[in-house]
């Protein structure tokens, strides 16, 4: 069973040669990634770059076609059910849409991991969940249903649920997506505060440049399922790579069209026989 104490010199997340495909289409090509303990790593890329897919593999939601994903030194595709459950208690995830359980109040959402994984009495569970709601500035909202919250509040409630078990790694999927710039900046500040307060390793998947530059220790740029570079904020800002420059300067990429290929794609299977 994975132990709570891990080798501090070893990266908490190690990905080697990860290959993945959806419906026969390859989406990740030999991805290598290494995240140190206490680091805030941003995985940045445009739509369809494979960053959300990479996150799903880091969370162990799918088995890779090839390669390994190690969390706390454990190859997660080789872990048994019991060990995987134990490992998952050490990670917290804030999904893009929050993924709060709509049939439960905000308070019950935050209490759920404690109720399921601990033998604490109900009073203690309530107090602990309120402490986490205080951290995300949602104290007093625990009786509301998720449908009664604004977009920013949903993200913060999801974050409260993600940190309620005091995880060692926190994953964020597009934390700023759909939020106005002020609320997004608040959330960035909250992520930084959490790292200071909890000494947690944070992985953020996003396409929001401002957010990425504001919070990242290091940024991994993903494009068409391949890692273009990993480096500090300034390194990425000054990168020469054309694809990265396009991403940073919001420049549309021109794709050269092969006329024969184009016609074949249009007419395949529908032409006169």
């Amino acid at each position: 069973m994975p132990q709570r104490t891990s080798d501090s010199s070893r990266p908490v997340i190690e990905v080697e040669g990860l290959r993945a495909s959806w419906g026969g289409q390859p989406v990740l090509h030999d991805v290598d990634l290494s995240v140190e303990a206490g680091e805030i790593r941003v995985v940045m890329g445009g739509s369809g770059s494979g960053k959300s897919t990479l996150l799903r593999y880091l969370l162990g939601l799918h088995r890779p076609d090839a390669g390994t994903v190690r969390l706390f030194g454990e190859d997660i595709s080789r872990l048994g059910r019991r060990d995987m459950l134990a490992l998952r208690r050490r990670i917290g995830v804030s999904f893009q849409g929050g993924a709060l359980f709509n049939s439960m109040t905000v308070g019950d959402n935050v209490c759920l991991p404690l109720r399921e994984h601990t033998r604490l009495d109900e009073h203690t569970i309530r107090i602990m969940s309120r402490m986490k709601l205080e951290v995300v500035s949602l104290a007093g909202f625990e009786h509301l249903m998720p449908s009664q919250l604004s977009g920013g509040m949903v993200k913060r409630a999801a974050l409260a649920r993600a940190i309620v078990m005091d995880p060692d790694i926190l994953f964020f999927d597009e934390p700023s997506a759909g939020l106005d710039p002020v609320v997004a900046a608040d959330l960035d500040a909250l992520i930084l505060r959490l790292r200071e307060a909890m000494q947690v390793t944070i992985v953020v998947v996003t396409h929001e440049l401002d957010s990425a530059f504001a919070i990242a220790d290091r940024i991994t740029v993903l494009d068409q399922g391949r890692i273009l570079m990993t480096g500090g904020v300034d390194e990425v800002r000054n990168a020469d790579n054309e694809r990265i420059r396009n991403l940073l300067t919001r420049t549309a990429t021109d794709t050269e069209v092969d006329v024969d290929d184009y016609l074949e794609r249009l007419t395949q299977g529908v032409g006169p026989q």
Binding site: L59, L85, R88, G97, A99
Partner: peptide, 21 residues
């Protein structure tokens, strides 16, 4: 309907990553 909605809004994924089968 309940499980389908939960599936589409990533609630099922949320359960799994929380260590709740």
């Amino acid at each position: 309907a309940r499980i389908g909605t939960m599936n589409m809004s990533q609630e099922i994924d949320a359960l799994r990553v929380m260590g709740i089968e």
